[in-house]
Amino acid sequence: MTGRDGGAPLAPLGPHDPVVILVRPQLAENIGAAARAMANGGLFHLRLVAPRDGWPQERAWRLGSGAHRILEEATVFNTVEEATQDLQRVFATCPRPRHIIKPVLTARAAAVELGTLAQRGLRSGILFGPERAGLDSEDMARADTLVRYPLNPAFMSLNLAQAVMVMAYEWWMAQENQPERDLQTHETRVATKGEVNNFIAHLVQDLEGTRFFRNVQKKPGMTRNLRHLFARGEITEQELRTLHGIVSALKGPGQQISCAQPGPGTPLDPGTPLDNES
């Protein structure tokens, strides 16, 4: 083989990570793209069952986009039975019903189950069928569980690499501890309640010098609405500094700048200019 660079330094995440088994793949390019998808999701072990054009094929490395080690470590088998004989659980992706009585999981549920098996020290594998027709009934008879992707029922067509990518993504997410929602705050942080209260007090105090609260009876409700506005999102400390500066600037030149005393939390200087903005 020629024309390859070193590729990414890929390695198995754990000793019992799932094995991806491509059954009778037809195009070397699809094998390479599938290896790339595996690398994205932290899967490493690749097995090929009777690849149509033999193995290895240089075209696979061209589409692997650096997932060279997965392709180099791939093993070839003649049958699904041979490719799964050392495994303890086998899953099979199945886009169409085959009149088979087996448990059926979504990709997400299958990924959780695969993680549980790995934690128990059991070896598992996932069968992916050939591009043209998918797995046949004999292939699926070797599997314990079917995996179906909940896609648009009017169009569920995926190419081989896409099918591997969905499973690899769900595998990665099942192992990942990253929160589903986060806020990128750059060099600042989310403001405390005390800092928010300090700003609202500053704002209300300065608004009292205008005609904003001309209806005294509505002032408590209007103040609550301001509080609700700033409670809906995670406003940052730097954003509060900016708002303090805006409120102070709106008083106009030559007028006294007021600042309500803060409640609990770190006080913020209302006169801070728009510094440290990125």
Results as ranks from 00 to 15, higher is better:
residue 2 T to V: 13
residue 3 G to V: 10
residue 3 G to R: 14
residue 5 D to Q: 10
residue 9 P to D: 12
residue 10 L to A: 05
residue 11 A to N: 02
residue 14 G to Q: 11
residue 16 H to Q: 10
residue 22 L to M: 10
residue 23 V to N: 05
residue 24 R to Q: 15
residue 24 R to M: 08
residue 27 L to F: 15
residue 28 A to W: 11
residue 30 N to V: 01
residue 30 N to E: 10
residue 31 I to F: 05
residue 38 M to L: 03
residue 40 N to Y: 04
residue 42 G to S: 02
residue 43 L to G: 03
residue 44 F to C: 06
residue 45 H to L: 03
residue 46 L to S: 04
residue 48 L to E: 03
residue 49 V to F: 03
residue 52 R to M: 11
residue 54 G to Y: 10
residue 55 W to A: 08
residue 56 P to N: 11
residue 58 E to S: 14
residue 61 W to N: 01
residue 61 W to A: 15
residue 62 R to Y: 05
residue 62 R to S: 14
residue 63 L to W: 08
residue 64 G to T: 08
residue 70 I to V: 15
residue 70 I to G: 08
residue 71 L to H: 06
residue 74 A to Q: 05
residue 76 V to Q: 13
residue 76 V to H: 04
residue 78 N to R: 14
residue 78 N to G: 15
residue 81 E to V: 12
residue 82 E to Y: 00
residue 83 A to C: 09
residue 83 A to D: 05
residue 91 F to Q: 06
residue 93 T to L: 08
residue 95 P to K: 01
residue 96 R to G: 00
residue 98 R to N: 05
residue 99 H to K: 15
residue 101 I to L: 13
residue 103 P to W: 00
residue 106 T to I: 03
residue 107 A to R: 00
residue 108 R to P: 00
residue 112 V to W: 01
residue 113 E to Q: 15
residue 113 E to N: 08
residue 113 E to D: 13
residue 114 L to P: 01
residue 114 L to A: 11
residue 114 L to Q: 13
residue 117 L to F: 11
residue 119 Q to S: 13
residue 122 L to K: 13
residue 126 I to Q: 02
residue 127 L to Q: 09
residue 128 F to S: 09
residue 128 F to A: 04
residue 132 R to D: 15
residue 133 A to Y: 12
residue 135 L to D: 10
residue 140 M to I: 15
residue 143 A to V: 08
residue 147 V to G: 02
residue 148 R to V: 04
residue 150 P to D: 10
residue 150 P to S: 03
residue 153 P to G: 01
residue 153 P to E: 05
residue 155 F to Q: 00
residue 156 M to F: 00
residue 156 M to D: 12
residue 162 Q to S: 14
residue 163 A to C: 06
residue 163 A to N: 02
residue 164 V to T: 07
residue 164 V to E: 09
residue 166 V to Y: 01
residue 167 M to I: 08
residue 168 A to L: 02
residue 169 Y to Q: 08
residue 169 Y to S: 06
residue 170 E to A: 11
residue 174 A to C: 02
residue 177 N to H: 11
residue 178 Q to Y: 10
residue 181 R to F: 07
residue 184 Q to G: 09
residue 184 Q to H: 12
residue 192 T to W: 03
residue 192 T to P: 06
residue 192 T to R: 08
residue 193 K to S: 12
residue 193 K to G: 11
residue 196 V to Y: 01
residue 199 F to I: 05
residue 202 H to E: 02
residue 202 H to T: 15
residue 203 L to Y: 08
residue 204 V to D: 11
residue 205 Q to Y: 04
residue 206 D to R: 14
residue 207 L to A: 12
residue 211 R to F: 03
residue 214 R to A: 15
residue 217 Q to R: 14
residue 222 M to A: 14
residue 225 N to I: 12
residue 227 R to G: 03
residue 228 H to N: 13
residue 236 T to E: 06
residue 236 T to K: 04
residue 240 L to N: 10
residue 240 L to W: 07
residue 242 T to I: 13
residue 244 H to Q: 10
residue 245 G to T: 00
residue 246 I to P: 05
residue 247 V to Q: 12
residue 250 L to K: 01
residue 255 Q to I: 01
residue 256 Q to M: 12
residue 257 I to A: 10
residue 265 G to P: 07
residue 266 T to C: 02
residue 267 P to T: 05
residue 268 L to A: 08
residue 268 L to T: 07
residue 272 T to N: 09
residue 276 N to F: 11
residue 277 E to M: 14
